[in-house]
């Protein structure tokens, strides 16, 4: 507590301590009188109850004092919150996509990152939040920040990190089966390191990997599809190519062969043929996310898993 990890930690923690402190005083007071009266005026010690008249002054006191105190609490809460809505004009804009069950980050220069948000220390960062599927909530406990990622609504948040290190990103709004695995990391680095990372071209260094696999990783397909045959929430890619698949189309069951055409349609219109035993509506359409070339690579990679 009272660290300066982000520009909000102090405001939030101060509010917490002030409010919690006042509450603690009340709790101790109430508990004390509860137990004290129960003992002091127990039937054994105090067999004859005394009638006490209502006391207007006392009643007014315990209306007015708590009212003033809660107004103070409201005020500190408001003060601690206000900066979170006042983003500096020179903030670095980063687009955050929260989707089942991955965090994607898009930087201004086209740089993309999955589940890893790299930011420079001491700089204001503005996160523009998008969701293509359901509600999520971008939560970094160490920074004391949280904002819901609402499909169809452009929510935003900002922060400034003041200490180097890695901090967890958690999803705080329930978003389905693997909600609790929707984890990411904010990495706070020095300005120089940031610039170096920001300008580095990942595709050059990762040339050992199949391009199809890179596409799959970048689009976070592996949050739902495994490569080793195990079932997550979607069918595994392993052994998919060339198999006969039972699907449901418009309420009717039919059997299709998993060829290029089928895989392409599964990715562009995932809800047209729904694989038996899996849920409709979980996978979104990647129509405007995967180009034709990327699609060909993905299909080629899925094919290569059979070898």
């Amino acid at each position: 507590m009272f660290t300066n990890v982000s520009n909000f930690t102090q405001g939030v923690d101060t509010a917490f301590v002030v409010i919690f402190g006042m509450c603690l005083v009340f709790l101790i007071g109430i508990t004390f009188f509860l137990i004290y009266f129960a003992l002091k005026y127990s039937k054994k010690r105090h067999p004859k109850p005394v009638d006490v008249k209502d006391n207007k002054k006392l009643e007014l006191t315990w209306i007015i004092i708590p009212t003033l105190l809660v107004l103070v609490m409201f005020w500190v809460g408001y003060k601690g919150y206000l900066p979170s809505r006042q983003v500096p004009a020179d903030a670095i804009n980063i687009k955050v996509t929260g989707m089942m069950w991955t965090w994607l980050f898009d930087y201004d220069n086209g740089k993309k990152s999955t589940n890893l948000l790299v930011v420079p220390i001491g700089k204001a960062i503005k996160l523009n939040l998008y969701s293509p599927d359901v509600l999520h909530s971008f939560y970094v406990p160490a920074f004391r920040i949280k904002e819901d990622v609402v499909p169809g609504k452009n929510n935003w948040m900002w922060f400034q990190a003041n200490e180097l290190g890695d901090y967890d990103i958690l999803c705080a709004e329930y978003c389905g089966t693997r909600h609790s695995y929707m984890l990411g990391v904010v990495r706070v680095v020095s300005e120089n390191e940031y610039i170096e990372w920001y300008n580095r071209d990942e595709s050059a260094s990762a040339d050992a990997e199949h391009i199809g696999l890179q596409v799959i990783k970048k689009n976070a397909c592996i949050a739902c599809h495994s490569l080793d045959g195990s079932k997550i929430v979607g069918p595994s890619f392993k052994g998919l190519y060339g198999r006969s698949i039972t699907v449901e189309t418009d309420g009717k069951t039919r059997i299709l062969l998993a060829d290029d055409e089928y895989i392409k349609r599964s990715i562009y219109e995932p809800n047209a043929d729904v694989v038996e035993g899996y849920n409709k509506g979980l996978m979104i359409s990647y129509k405007d996310k995967l180009t034709e070339e990327e699609m060909a690579e993905v299909i080629d990679f899925i094919k290569s898993l059979n070898e």
Binding site: F8, G11, V12, A15, F16, I19, F20, C23, F26, L27, I30, T31, L34, V70, M73, F74, V76, G77, Y78, K79, G80, Y81, S84, S137, Y139, P141, R144, I145, K146, E147, A172, E173, Y174
Partner: peptide
């Protein structure tokens, strides 16, 4: 009841304040 409800009610105040709720909401 009085004891437990008081704890519940007072922690409700912590959640009602904006700054703290942003951190504690949905935890």
């Amino acid at each position: 009841f009085i004891f437990l409800f008081t704890i519940g009610g007072l922690t409700g105040l912590v959640l009602g304040a904006l700054a703290t709720d942003i951190h504690l909401h949905d935890t």
